[in-house]
Amino acid sequence: MSKHHLGEFEELVLLTVAVLHDEAYGIAIINEMERRLGRKVSIGSLQTVLRRLEKKGYLSSRFGEATKIRGGKRKRYFILTNYGIKILETTKDQRMALWNAIPNLDFRNGHA
Rank of each mutant, 00 (worst) to 15 (best):
H4N: 13
A24Q: 03
A24V: 10
N31V: 05
K40I: 02
L12T: 04
I27Y: 07
K3S: 13
V17K: 08
L6E: 04
R35L: 09
A18M: 04
A28G: 02
L15F: 04
G7N: 09
G26H: 11
S2H: 11
L20D: 03
I43W: 02
G26E: 07
I43C: 02
E32M: 14
I27W: 06
E34N: 12
A18Y: 03
H5E: 11
L15D: 05
N31L: 07
A24N: 09
H4P: 01
L37G: 00
Y25P: 00
L15R: 15
I43V: 10
A18P: 00
L15T: 05
I29G: 03
L15S: 00
G38Q: 08
S42L: 06
K3M: 13
L14S: 01
R36L: 14
T16W: 01
V13W: 01
E10D: 06
V41M: 01
V41H: 04
L14M: 03
A18E: 06
E32C: 13
H21I: 02
N31I: 01
A18S: 09
L14K: 01
G38V: 05
I43P: 06
V41P: 00
E10A: 14
G7I: 12
S2R: 12
L12A: 08
H4Y: 13
R36M: 10
L12C: 10
Y25A: 03
E10T: 08
I30Y: 04
I30A: 01
E34C: 06
K40W: 02
S42D: 09
I43R: 15
M33W: 03
I29M: 08
G7A: 13
L6I: 10
A28R: 14
K40H: 07
L15V: 00
D22P: 01
G7Y: 09
E8T: 11
F9G: 02
E8V: 13
M33D: 09
L12F: 06
F9K: 13
Y25E: 11
L15M: 11
L6G: 09
E32D: 11
A28S: 13
L20N: 06
A18R: 12
G38K: 10
I29F: 02
A18K: 15
R35E: 08
E11H: 05
G26R: 09
H4D: 13
A28F: 08
R39G: 00
V19K: 12
E10L: 04
E11P: 00
I30G: 09
M33I: 15
V19P: 01
A18F: 05
L15P: 00
L20Y: 07
R36T: 12
E23M: 11
A24D: 06
K3R: 13
V13M: 05
V17W: 07
S2A: 14
E8D: 12
V17Y: 10
H21A: 15
A28D: 06
A18V: 00
V13I: 14
V41G: 00
K40P: 03
K3T: 14
E32L: 11
L6T: 10
D22C: 06
A18H: 10
L37E: 12
V41R: 01
V19A: 12
L20R: 08
N31C: 00
G26T: 15
H4L: 15
I27N: 08
E10Y: 06
L14Y: 07
V41I: 15
